[in-house]
C-alpha cells in the first residue's frame, strides 16, 4: 500500500493540470464567495456562513475534474495497463488513488474555506450582517460555523471520491465528468419543478449536492429537508456506492 501510495503520489504530482486544478478550485471558491458576499443583502439571505461558502458550488467542479482525470487520464493514455502491471491488486490501486484525491481535495478545501470565511468576515458586516442585527460574527470558534467549515472541506473530499468512483466505472474522462455533474445538478433542478412538497423534500434528501451542502447551514436547521451531518452522510453513501461499483468493475474487467 505504501508503494502504491508513493507511485500514485508521483503520478499526481507530475501530471500536468493537478496544480492548476487545485489552485483553480481555491480561486473559484474564494472568488464566487467574495462576489456573492459583495452582492448580498440581509433581505435576500439569512445565513451568513452559508452565504460566505457559496463558492463551493464552483470549486467542486474543479475538484471533480481533477479526481476524474486521476483515473480517466490513465485510461485515455493506456497508463492504466502499466499501473496494474506494477500493482496487480486492483483494490489497492483504487484505495491509493482514493486516499490521494481525497487528501488533495481536502487540502484545497481547507485553503478555499478559510479564504471564503475570511472574505465573508471582512465583507458581510458592511452589508448589514452585524451583531446589532442579530448575526453573530463569522468565526470558527462558533460551533455552527465550525461545522459549516469542516463540513464544506469534507464535502469537497467526498465529491472527489464520488468522481473517482464514477471515472473508474465509466473509464472515459469526458463521460465521467458528465455523469458527475449531472448527478450534482439535475436533482435540484428537478426538485424545483416538482410541485408536490413531499416529493420535493425526498428529492432534496437523496440529492448528493443538496443533501451534502446542508452541512453549510447554520440557521433555520428545522426547515432543512435533511440535517447537516445526515446530509453529508447521504453524499458519503453516494461516494461509497460509486467507489464500490467502480472497484468491482475494475476488479472484474480487463483494463
Amino acid at each position: 500500500m505504501r508503494l502504491a501510495l508513493h507511485a500514485e503520489w508521483t503520478k499526481l504530482r507530475t501530471q500536468p493540470g493537478t496544480a492548476a486544478l487545485l489552485i483553480g478550485a481555491v480561486v473559484l471558491t474564494v472568488g464566487l464567495s467574495t462576489g456573492v458576499a459583495a452582492a448580498s443583502s440581509t433581505s435576500s439571505a439569512s445565513d451568513p456562513a452559508k452565504l460566505a461558502l457559496t463558492g463551493i458550488y464552483l470549486g467542486q467542479i474543479a475538484v471533480a475534474s481533477l479526481s476524474v482525470l486521476v483515473m480517466g487520464g490513465e485510461y485515455s493514455t493506456g497508463m492504466i495497463r502499466t499501473t496494474l502491471g506494477a500493482i496487480p491488486r486492483r483494490w489497492t490501486v483504487l484505495a491509493a488513488k482514493a486516499t490521494l484525491v481525497a487528501g488533495a481535495a481536502a487540502a484545497a478545501g481547507v485553503v478555499a474555506v478559510l479564504g471564503s470565511l475570511l472574505a465573508g468576515a471582512l465583507i458581510l458586516p458592511g452589508h448589514g450582517f452585524t451583531v446589532a442585527h442579530g448575526y453573530p460574527p463569522l468565526s470558527p470558534s462558533d460551533g455552527a460555523v465550525l461545522r459549516a467549515a469542516v463540513g464544506s472541506v469534507l464535502y469537497l473530499a467526498l465529491i472527489a471520491l464520488l468522481s473517482l468512483g464514477v471515472a473508474t466505472a465509466v473509464r472515459d474522462s469526458a463521460a465521467a465528468v458528465g455523469v458527475v455533474l449531472a448527478l450534482l445538478f439535475l436533482f435540484p433542478i428537478v426538485a424545483s419543478v416538482v410541485s408536490d412538497p413531499h416529493w420535493q423534500r425526498h428529492l432534496q434528501q437523496i440529492a448528493p449536492m443538496t443533501a451534502g451542502l446542508a452541512v453549510q447551514a447554520t440557521t433555520g436547521l428545522r426547515s432543512l429537508p435533511i440535517g447537516p451531518w445526515a446530509g453529508l452522510g447521504v453524499l458519503a453513501a453516494w461516494a461509497a456506492g460509486w467507489l464500490l461499483t467502480g472497484g468491482l468493475l475494475l476488479r472484474l474487467r480487463d483494463a
Binding site: 456573492v36 439571505a45 485515455s76 472515459d172 474522462s173 465528468v177 455533474l181 433542478i189 424545483s192
Partner: peptide, 27 residues
Amino acid sequence: RGAGAVTVVIAMIVLPYILATASVLPA
C-alpha cells in the same frame, strides 16, 4: 481535452441557471 471541455461547458450553461434559481444569490 474531453474532461476539461465538458466541465467548462456544463459550468457555463447549467451552473448559472442553478445559481440563479436556487436563491443563493440576490435577485
